[in-house]
Computed example of a mutant assay.
Amino acid sequence: MIVFAGPSIAGIDPALTDGFDLRPPAQQGDVFLAALDQPLVIGIIDGYFEGVPSVWHKEILWALSRGIAVCGASSMGALRAAELDSFGMRGTGEIYAAYRDGVLEDDDEVALLHGPAELGYPGLSLAMVNVRATVDAARTDGIVTSRQAGLLKDVAKSQFYKSRTWHSILAEINIQDLPKDANTALRSWLGENEVDQKKLDAADLLTQLSDGAFSSSSVDFHFEETDLWITATHTWRRRRHTEPETERAGYSLLGGL
């Protein structure tokens, strides 16, 4: 079982990744090349965007057409699963369900600036889906009011994904909207209660894979090998044999484009 992951599993229990062929966040062509290895399952959690071409829908469809189960969650995987579940790709987790049901639409909900593989893909900014999950938990615990929760989400959403952090969010909240004592209480609460929804969804996918879920694929569409597809796959095949193993610096959509 091949799984593409990075920032979404940073700090995750190592036991959850045992038994997988764990590969870096996917870029365009990686799913096609993985399918050439004829795995039982391809799991997509994280994927690159912006600096390099993102995972192409057509390569996922090609893998599915060859009887390989493809599933996704958390980040890029959640996005692609929501877009392609009608073709047989399968998704799991809260983020996937939100995209599938139209609760979330924007790619930047899962966008994240992160560090290199050598450091374990540490997150350097805050994904909007994690802001939403954390603020909802804070409201449930009585740390913030419903109105304050809405304001926190609005401020976070207005910030560029590369610079969004709890510090930047709380610094922008007006003192009239979140008084100093409430701001202090929230900061203290965050230390022990912040919700990493992307990591939770990634762990859910890995657990289901370990339990044998998503182990078969059956599709009812015809895969058309267009000239563009043939050209692309020739390029990807050459890359497999000539591209050195280098760190892919960039940004990851913990489910995004």
Results as ranks from 00 to 15, higher is better:
residue 42 I to C: 07
residue 1 M to R: 05
residue 246 T to Q: 10
residue 138 A to L: 01
residue 110 V to Y: 00
residue 255 G to P: 05
residue 171 A to L: 13
residue 38 Q to R: 15
residue 144 V to S: 02
residue 57 H to N: 10
residue 252 S to Q: 03
residue 82 A to Y: 09
residue 131 V to L: 12
residue 61 L to R: 07
residue 43 G to V: 14
residue 203 A to T: 08
residue 89 M to Q: 07
residue 53 P to F: 11
residue 140 T to E: 14
residue 123 G to Y: 01
residue 129 V to A: 09
residue 139 R to G: 07
residue 71 C to W: 03
residue 202 A to I: 07
residue 94 E to I: 12
residue 81 A to P: 11
residue 42 I to Q: 02
residue 83 E to W: 05
residue 111 A to Y: 02
residue 225 E to A: 13
residue 119 L to R: 11
residue 26 A to W: 00
residue 152 L to H: 04
residue 63 A to E: 10
residue 104 L to P: 12
residue 45 I to H: 06
residue 148 Q to D: 10
residue 93 G to F: 00
residue 81 A to N: 08
residue 107 D to L: 05
residue 197 Q to H: 05
residue 243 E to L: 11
residue 199 K to A: 04
residue 35 A to D: 05
residue 196 D to C: 01
residue 206 L to K: 02
residue 165 T to F: 08
residue 139 R to N: 10
residue 109 E to M: 08
residue 8 S to V: 09
residue 255 G to W: 06
residue 219 V to F: 09
residue 133 A to C: 05
residue 131 V to D: 04
residue 164 R to S: 09
residue 106 D to A: 15
residue 77 G to I: 04
residue 250 G to C: 11
residue 60 I to Q: 03
residue 62 W to K: 10
residue 54 S to V: 13
residue 26 A to H: 00
residue 75 S to G: 13
residue 128 M to H: 08
residue 255 G to H: 05
residue 191 G to R: 08
residue 198 K to C: 04
residue 221 F to K: 04
residue 214 F to K: 02
residue 92 T to H: 04
residue 207 T to C: 08
residue 179 P to W: 15
residue 124 L to M: 07
residue 88 G to T: 12
residue 248 R to Y: 11
residue 244 P to A: 13
residue 65 S to G: 10
residue 228 L to V: 13
residue 187 R to S: 11
residue 33 L to R: 01
residue 95 I to V: 14
